[in-house]
Design a protein around this nucleic acid. Structure first.
Lengths: 193, 193, 193, 193
DNA sequence: AACTAATCGAGACGGTACGTCCGGTCTTGCA
DNA sequence: TGCAAGACCGGACGTACCGTCTCGATTAGTT
């Protein structure tokens, strides 16, 4: 009952957070600054998000009902599409500085850790599993590889490129798609007799 | 002139920092807490390190005169050894929480960014370049691959495994060595005529 | 036109305010707490009272159509009755903590100041004036003393006893009545020739 | 050990508090405003005073080593001097608004209550006791009156005049001295046989 | 043996962000 | 229109931390 939440306030918070993230980065983001820019009171923020981390997560980690990745017909194509999706997520101006900040703060709050895991690990691994099963069905793969390992191979290089090398990931998706497909389809050397 | 620095103070700072990093994480680490635990004054810290980041870097990022990775005779072996070195670096109790914190703070300080880049990117890529050149010399590779890409393939999955999946990287080195070697040695499909 | 105000709501507000005043004091009194305890909404309060001060005033300062103090036949007796009335007003559990809070907030709001003055100063001084005029008529006093001064002599000691000394004012009315009557009826020393 | 408190900071806090009290009153006084005006950090304030009340008390209730009131030779004169001292205390620009605010907040903090009592009640009553004993020794009084009662008679009317009537207490000291002396020296009517 | 100069522990300092709390206003839907 | 529920803005509170600074007390090397 009572007065319902004003959806314009929701929007204003998220927008202001994204703008400030893009402008000042995660560390330079202030709750008061968000409130002021959004033209709202701090209480309106804390009514929605318990901590700064929660708010940034909601604002920066744009996770709609991720549409299941399309079937491109080949393992390599599917992988390339998946990598490109991840790249697109992480290169959104707000996300870039937020992801690392949140990742660093995970040690502080178990809640945040669970939330992060659900979004990035569980969700992505589900997509990867589907993708691999299609490859098995097609005959590209003989057995289903370790999903966690493929997840690491897919997301890891994107992280390194963005956050360690600070390079623009142009062409990364295609390259990674090809390389990972090659790695997975190569027969491991049979154990010596 | 004047009184020389006390090397026991150096030790006490680094030890206390490592212990507190392992116990409270990067975000929970306080300069006052380090000083108290080390039994020293804050001025002794700031005489040595300009910022919290500098101190943590010195304490957590154990970078001795990296001994050039040994030649194991195969690309796969060399890659496995390299991955294992990276894993060992990052799984040191203090490093785990420090690396992400520092990475997140890089946006704040250009100095830190340069320092980090020198240590992680330049150094590792030099090792990778050598490793790949050996493989070319052996005939395992026909041409020298893009070093940045291989760097991403080598370090990225380690990051994902540790910081996203929060799994212990047992056996990761061997698996990654095999997969990356396979990916690099597979001939890319020739363009259709 | 529309729905008439619910008198049970009026009662609930006043009762809750008094209970909370007695329990938490003026500073600890919250509008939300009053609403919750009264089982009503905050709008019902603010429809009746513009500010917290107004509400507390209405709840704590019990001012009916003050029955003119009876004529006891002597100045001393009249004074004692008046003091006792003031004591009774101020020792009501809710009033004790409210009066000081309101007095302190007077600087903030001129409206409250006027309201307070009307209730405490004007009203009481009117009573005192009548009382003194009776004494003049009786011959107990030769001239009418300064009403403000007598007002200060009558109300001040009650304040001190309650709010500075935190003592129960047992017997205070009788004592004050006797002392003030004595002071007023004593001939001031004639100016020396 | 360590760096000693900077006495200029002490001064700056007290001065800023007094100025703001005189300008904005007790309710309008903000810790941030005090810090800003004093040109210091809030931590410097909270290192010295646990709460806003403590700070205001220290700043507004100017209580040096109260010099024992002089012996004027008569009870009336001694009383007038004492009243004037109290008036002077309370009419200091900072004190006027602070005293009521603190008095109102006493319910919140027992510490503050004790502090207040020590300063106003114990100290003043000690002065009054001495004054009355001198009057007994002189023969002006036959027996020592109730100190609490005289305390109420002395301080109460000042409170009423300042805080209820909002009048300037010109001439109040002389009037009160005369009236209270008269009240105390008048023989109570002997009980009828 | 005195002097000089830098170090040391302790802790105060300015500044800034945090998350909480309240007062007074506004907005729902029900009666 | 009244009412309960509760969201909203604004702004103060007291806490915590960073990096700087100031003490008095060491502790070398230099006169």
């Amino acid at each position: 009952m009572g007065r319902p939440r004003d959806s314009r306030v929701d929007e204003a918070i998220l927008t202001a957070t994204r703008e400030l993230l893009a402008h000042s980065g995660y560390a330079g983001l202030t709750m008061d600054a968000v409130a002021e820019r959004a033209g709202i009171g701090k209480s309106a923020i804390y009514r929605r998000y318990a901590t700064k981390q929660d708010m940034v997560f909601a604002a920066a980690i744009h996770v709609p009902d991720l549409p299941a990745s399309p079937d491109t017909g080949t393992l390599e194509g599917d992988l390339a599409v998946l990598v490109q999706e991840i790249v697109d997520h992480l290169t959104a101006p707000a996300a870039t500085s937020a992801v690392l900040g949140l990742l660093a703060d995970i040690g502080t709050s178990p809640d945040l850790a669970v939330h992060f895991h659900q979004t990035f690990v569980v969700r992505e691994q589900a997509g990867i599993r589907g993708l691999l099963e299609r490859a098995v069905a097609r005959g590209e793969l003989r057995t289903l590889p370790d999903v966690s390992l493929v997840h690491a191979l897919v997301t890891g290089p994107v992280f390194t490129t963005l956050y360690l090398q600070h390079r623009t990931p142009d062409g990364l998706a295609a390259q990674l798609g090809r390389l990972i497909a090659a790695a997975l389809t190569t027969e491991p050397a049979p154990p010596r007799p």
